[in-house]
């Protein structure tokens, strides 16, 4: 076999998909921990704490390295996903007249591309709202720090004409994340060959718990911010 064989093989694309996907699961945990400050520390104290956190996350060198790794993972996961999907389409140029996909596979597992696309659209809009504003946009200062806290609160506020739309959009996107994770988490382990009679049920259970809990906690935050500002 040629030395570059592995890079071209279908399995290598799956390893890349799994590794980037599982890394992004870790990213979600970190991101969630940061976001939850918006609920647990409120008022002026919360504003100061969140803005200090945002300052730290955008300047600390180790975090910056991690964030570049995250951008790269998202990009790779998306491009790899598109390549895999196109190859899979080509593998069946003539489809079935009648196909009962629900008989043998879960809905999420059959629609990872669509779910991923929804998440990507959300991601672009989400980064434009907060990441771009924090890095390059015009942002008010508070105690000498960029006041991302106020930007977030304003974004999910009843006073904002699109505040409710933003909350609903966010919650819907989290549902897509939940379905994506419900298949993706355990699928990542399978692609890497991690399967064992004893441990696979634990991985599957953890994956389902992760898919339910993480997006649910993310979704609670904008709902909480909207309601408390009514």
């Amino acid at each position: 076999m040629s030395k570059s064989g592995i890079l071209k093989s279908s399995l290598a694309k799956k390893y890349a998909m799994a590794l980037t996907g599982l890394f992004l699961c870790l990213f979600l945990v970190g991101h969630l921990a940061g976001n939850l400050q918006l609920i647990f520390i409120t008022g002026a104290e919360g504003q100061q704490a969140f803005n200090e956190y945002a300052q730290f996350m955008t300047t600390f060198p180790l975090v910056k390295i991690l964030s570049y790794l995250t951008y790269a993972s998202v990009l790779f996961h998306v491009v790899d996903g598109i390549v895999l999907t196109m190859q899979n389409r080509n593998a069946r140029p003539v489809g079935y007249v009648k196909e009962n996909g629900a008989a043998n596979a879960k809905w999420a597992s059959r629609n990872m591309g669509i779910l991923g696309t929804i998440i990507l659209v959300f991601l672009v809009s989400h980064m434009q709202s907060f990441w771009y504003t924090m890095h390059f946009g015009e942002i008010p200062l508070h105690n000498g720090l960029k006041d991302l806290h106020s930007v977030v609160l304003q974004f999910f506020s009843p006073e904002n004409a699109l505040g409710l739309v933003a909350v609903i959009g966010y919650v819907l996107a989290q549902m897509a994340v939940a379905f994506h994770l419900s298949h993706g988490f355990q699928s990542g382990f399978q692609s890497l060959g991690v399967r064992h009679a004893k441990y696979t049920p634990i991985i599957e259970w953890t994956g389902m718990a992760f898919a339910l809990l993480v997006p649910a906690l993310f979704a609670i935050i904008p709902i909480f911010l909207y309601i408390t500002q009514l």
Partner: peptide, 21 residues
């Protein structure tokens, strides 16, 4: 695996449908 790819089969996305059928 190399031959499987050459033949133009698609990539596995772990839906598990194969094992059911």
């Amino acid at each position: 695996v190399e031959q499987m790819d050459k033949e133009g089969f698609g990539n596995c996305t772990n839906t598990g449908a194969c094992a059911v059928e």
